[in-house]
Design a protein around this nucleic acid. Structure first.
Length: 649
RNA sequence: GCAGUCUUAGCUCAGUAGGUAGAGCGUUUCCAUGGUAAGGAAAAGGUCCCGGGUUCAAAUCCCGGAGUCUGCACCA
């Protein structure tokens, strides 16, 4: 019998007989390892635990406490779910199934009628039956021809065979008389899957293309331990409570009235206060960083967007133009760039003025697809913290880094830490979506990459995510519900200066073409407030909190005047304070202040009145501290000035 | 936009053998004047999303539309 050579993670190499399984190998190392092992991983590819191996390589034993182990479990659960679906529904087709850190899903297609949420319970019971039988799961390789025969006329499976075939062969898993194409590994038998939960059903396009048929996607999750599932479900529940739409309602920050207009948010005083505070902050930061703030109209002649290319490339996302009846067409702007170009073009510009930084909290309108709208995260009217800097070619790198530095400093003040960088390129397979100039794209993309590499920052690269006029650096964050979204963006643009024939007078006295950098630091006011609401869970740091101080008199009659006196002092210092004058018990008012997550609650009664002091309770804390009025003013002033961050003091 | 789900008071939600509506919270008023997370009572508040149909009768059944939510697609 021939020998196979395996290299272990620690670098050691051992020989095993041909046909050895990952299980045999695990046992040869340690019984304790074999006990928690669920699969093998050869040269970074998962293989079943009991699958005979015929090729050596780098081996890793996958255990149940690893990410890969969980993945194998979920892949197995997905197969069991498919078996349950086959047994409960006749004539059903499967699209793809996948396991990831959030759980797993199975795509199904049933002619005429679809699987609905009501059927998840009974499917779950069918799964339990399959698990109870503890059916063994085996692997077999079929030739493409045999595989096609097996799947019959199932259109999705036929395409999957094509996609997954290696050297004319496709791997199938066999459970009882159920057979299924799988990538990766599964557990040796169905009985190994004990803890699972079917979660939801939603539509998903076959292969992710909107031109393809829509399948029903069943979402579910599985764990090795019940406690892990419970924790996961608790997390999902917490995510729902963290959702800015829920908190926005509780704290009366904003609302969207479908009757008044979908995707058109109204800012209530509380939300407006947060927004105004952010706006003042970012304008100050930008002015300190050399930006010139402007105001430009939300409406412009359609010709402007024909020149810019928006009309040609972005029309689907724009509101239809308004025909004024005399030949004039007005358009609600979807972006601010052309407006800032107008500002640039107002004067002849010298090289001495560059980089020229124009900024605006620019309101824009985009006709987002109805299904994309979501609270403040995706809206049809938004105000972008927009900025355009006009630079000479050799200033791109410096300016890019300068913007990045400002961005990270702003993030620090808001305590934003959980984000990744993404370089977004055009889709090379679908170039007509973009401004057509290969050289421009290649140059701009490599410049961005070069700048990031020079700074030594980690990033991912994504084709097809660019703006139509140029590539960009996106800062990606996650919403409470786990969906990825872009917060900040820096975009390189050689196109608009060309189209609007921009120039500046160089040192040589001749005209030169500037380059534009589009950038948004704190995103749109809508998305940014949504994001902050979720990361703070509604407990805004003092400088942002709509109400910073609530003063509660023990007795309105006896202590109301003292409370008002303190309130006046605080307000004179621009501290957002009010007295709760409702004729309720003190305990009720304190509870109310806490549920509204107000940073400071001040209780004043006889003791405070006599000592000219305050009983200070910070949000989320049970204990109270007695302070003199000047002491408290000093504390809260420092809190606000430091953006409530210890390291800013 | 697409698939499914849902739409009842300001908010969260009850309300199916079709018979013109309820609770809790909130709001207002009155009583209670209190020491760190809910004192008591009363009142006000509803085109049951919109339009059509079936029916003696529709919140409830049917059709169409709009919107919500979950997801996909699209994107700040």
């Amino acid at each position: 019998m021939s020998q196979l050579s395996f290299e272990f993670p620690d670098g050691s190499v051992k020989q095993f007989d041909d046909g050895v399984t990952s299980q045999d190998i695990a046992k040869s190392i340690a019984i304790s390892l074999a006990k928690k092992a669920v699969a093998g991983k050869i040269d970074d590819k998962l293989v079943n635990y009991t699958e005979p191996l015929h090729k050596g390589g780098k081996i890793e034993i996958v255990t149940s406490d690893s990410k890969d182990g969980l993945n194998v479990l979920r892949q197995t659960a997905a197969e069991i779910l498919k078996m349950a679906i086959v047994s409960d529904f006749k004539n059903i087709h499967f699209g793809e199934s996948e396991a990831d850190e959030d759980g797993f899903f199975v795509d199904t297609d049933k002619p005429e009628e679809q699987i609905s949420v009501d059927q998840l319970d009974s499917l779950s019971k069918t799964m339990a039956g399959i698990i109870k039988k503890d059916l063994p799961i085996s692997v077999e390789e079929l030739s493409d021809a045999d595989a096609e025969k097996l799947v019959g006329d199932d259109p999705y499976q036929r395409e999957l065979i094509k996609a997954k075939s290696v050297d004319g062969k496709v791997k199938f898993y066999k459970i009882g008389d159920f057979q299924s194409i799988v990538e990766g590994a599964v557990l040796p038998s169905t009985g190994k899957v004990k803890i699972y939960k079917l979660l939801s059903v939603a539509g998903a396009y076959w292969q992710g293309k909107s031109s393809n048929p829509m399948l029903q996607r069943l979402y579910a999750t599985a764990f090795f331990k019940k406690a892990d599932l419970d924790e996961d479900l608790k997390k999902r529940q917490e995510a729902r409570e963290r959702d800015h739409r829920v908190i926005g309602n509780q704290l009366d920050l904003f609302f969207v009235d479908p009757k008044a207009g979908a995707g058109l948010p109204y800012w209530m005083p509380n939300g407006a206060t947060i927004r105004r505070t952010i706006e003042r902050y970012i304008i100050d930061r930008e002015i300190a960083n050399g930006y010139q703030h402007v105001y430009t109209p939300v409406l412009a002649n359609l010709d402007m967007y024909k020149t810019s290319g928006h009309w040609a490339h972005y029309r689907d996302d724009m509101f239809p133009p308004m025909d004024m009846g005399d030949g004039e067409m007005l358009e609600l702007r979807p972006m601010n760039c052309p407006s800032h170009i107008e500002i640039y073009n107002r004067h002849i510009r010298s090289y001495r003025e560059l980089p020229l930084r124009i900024a605006e909290l620019g309101m824009m309108h985009r006709y987002e697809k109805s299904g994309a709208l979501s609270g403040l995260q995706r809206v049809r009217e938004m105000t972008l913290n927009d900025g355009h800097t006009f630079v000479a070619l050799d200033q791109i790198q410096d300016e890019f880094q300068r913007i990045l530095k400002l961005m990270m400093s702003v993030y620090h003040d808001f305590d934003i830490n959980d984000y990744t960088f993404r370089l977004s390129y055009r889709d090379p397979k679908n170039t007509q979506k973009y401004f057509d100039d290969d050289e421009m794209w290649n140059r701009a993309q490599s410049m961005l990459k070069g700048a990031m590499d020079q700074l030594g920052l980690k990033y991912t690269e994504a084709e097809g995510e660019a703006a139509f006029y140029g590539p960009k650096l996106d800062v990606q964050t996650k919403t409470a519900l786990g969906n990825e979204e872009t917060l900040s963006t820096i975009q390189l643009d050689f196109m608009l200066p060309e189209r609007f024939d921009l120039h500046y007078i160089g040192e040589d006295g001749k005209q030169h073409r500037p380059v534009m950098i589009h950038r948004g630091i704190v995103s749109t006011m809508e998305r940014f407030v949504a994001y902050l609401t979720e990361i703070y869970k509604g407990a805004f740091p003092t400088w942002l909190a709509p109400h910073q101080v609530k003063i509660i008199p023990v007795s309105q009659d006896k202590h109301g005047d003292y409370a008002k006196k303190i309130n006046d002092q605080l307000r004179a210092l621009n501290i957002r304070s009010e007295v709760d004058e409702r004729a309720e018990k003190m305990g009720y008012l304190i509870r109310d202040a806490q549920t509204h997550k107000i940073p400071y609650t001040l209780v004043v009664g006889d003791d405070e009145l006599n000592n000219n002091s305050l009983s200070v309770r910070k949000y989320g804390q049970k204990d109270t501290v007695s302070k003199s009025v000047p002491e408290f003013i000093d504390e809260i002033s420092k809190d606000i000035a430091s953006y409530s961050r210890e390291d800013n003091k």
